[in-house]
Amino acid sequence: MGFKKLLTKKIEFSASHRYWNPGWSEEKNVSVFGKSAGPYGHGHNYSLEVTVEGEVDAQTGMIINLYELKSVMNDVLSDFDHKHLNDDNPHFKDLVPTTENIARVLWDLLEEKLLTNPKCSLYRVRLYETNDLYVDYWRK
């Protein structure tokens, strides 16, 4: 029987966002998104947990070097940390920056950078918006 080997690293970042669908009236935006539709945005302290899957290298004893993973995550997060996602991050020009969409965008960016490491693959992206709300994104 095989064993699953997973490694997870967490990094926190802070960003602001606004929930707004430009195709809708102001009334509809407010009725669907409530306070999150406020014109100037609001912010959260997000926490990103990236889980990778792979074999443990016999020489290093690692699935991936944590310094490498940390550097990949920080590279990706440089466009998110201390930014207004709607205004500063091109991925959310036409995409509502919900926790769900942020997790999906982060998956794509992380996966692309991790492709350079053939020994591990992305298993799960878990994004906490607050302590009480998180989203998991994965692809089979």
Binding site: E100, A103, R104, D132, L133, Y134, V135, D136, W138
Partner: peptide, 8 residues
């Protein structure tokens, strides 16, 4: 994809 919310 899943979303998890905590209540008390």
């Amino acid at each position: 994809m899943s979303l998890t919310r905590t209540y008390r």
